[in-house]
Write a protein that binds this DNA or RNA. Structure first.
Lengths: 138, 138
DNA sequence: TTATGTGCAAAACATTTGCAGGAGT
DNA sequence: ACTCCTGCAAATGTTTTGCACATAA
């Protein structure tokens, strides 16, 4: 973790970043691997993991530590929150404001030096809501 | 997931719950396994996983989908938030209030049926802060 | 030229699952 | 008795790592 000086600009890195920037979903490492493989068929999954980790460490991308079994990655670095569908696992952005002092409040309520926070909403996405209705009818 | 009717009261279940209720930390499945094994040396790790999952499903305990590689479990079901130390991985409770309408806001900002949310703060715990100072001195 | 990065395969973890025997109800 | 549950071990899924070769600087 955390190494920046002399980070080389390789084809693999460029393409991983390009592909990640193309989508608004929040792909898992394996999904990024699939996307990238269409352009670089011989790339290794290890390379994808290593580079996503590296880019997240250097702040170029965001590693989402959301619920579910896999980590997800996001080319949008600007602070925002997420909703995760408990039915299909999809993750979307949520753009709402929370009270500005929330980190300070948390610091006061603990003996941590609070550096940041993340809010994850859980719910059911519109696609899965549709399917639920369909099931009810059948 | 989700099975309640005719759930038997076994020794394993009682002890898992007792041990979890004893601690204020938020142990991983493996840590619960270690705690329980002191009283039930022949219990299997699979049993611990199965029962933690089952209890979480029936709302007796909470499964925390926090950052890091492992899930954590909490005997306290009352809604509250968490801080995770980015240095040692420890998770503590945070008891603060957020705006009451936050789920409604999220619902409005998306097309999800929003069911809940979780806030995870990240920071450095007092123990690790102490060590940092020690390192600086050395 | 040389330190860093890559592909590949194996290893390391975390979690889940199949099954035969065991225990609540 | 009749399910449901457990221990065990094997399988699965995700992420990390070692190493020989490749490549950006």
């Amino acid at each position: 973790m955390e190494k920046l000086p002399g980070m080389r600009l390789t084809t693999q890195r460029q393409i991983i970043l390009e592909e990640l920037a193309k989508v608004t979903s929040h792909p898992t490492a394996n999904e990024v691997y699939d996307m990238v493989r269409k352009r670089l068929p011989r790339i290794g999954l290890g390379t994808v993991y290593r580079n996503l980790e590296l880019m997240a460490d250097s702040g170029i991308i965001l590693k989402l530590e959301v619920g579910g079994t896999q980590k997800r990655f996001d080319a949008t670095v600007a602070p925002h929150y997420h909703v995760r569908c408990i039915s299909c696992g999809k993750v979307d952005d949520i753009d709402i404001e929370v009270q500005a002092q929330i980190n300070a409040q948390a610091a006061q309520a603990s003996n941590y030096e609070v550096l940041g926070h993340h809010i994850e909403f859980t719910g059911i996405c519109s696609d899965c809501l549709g399917e639920e209705k369909a099931e009810t009818i059948n």
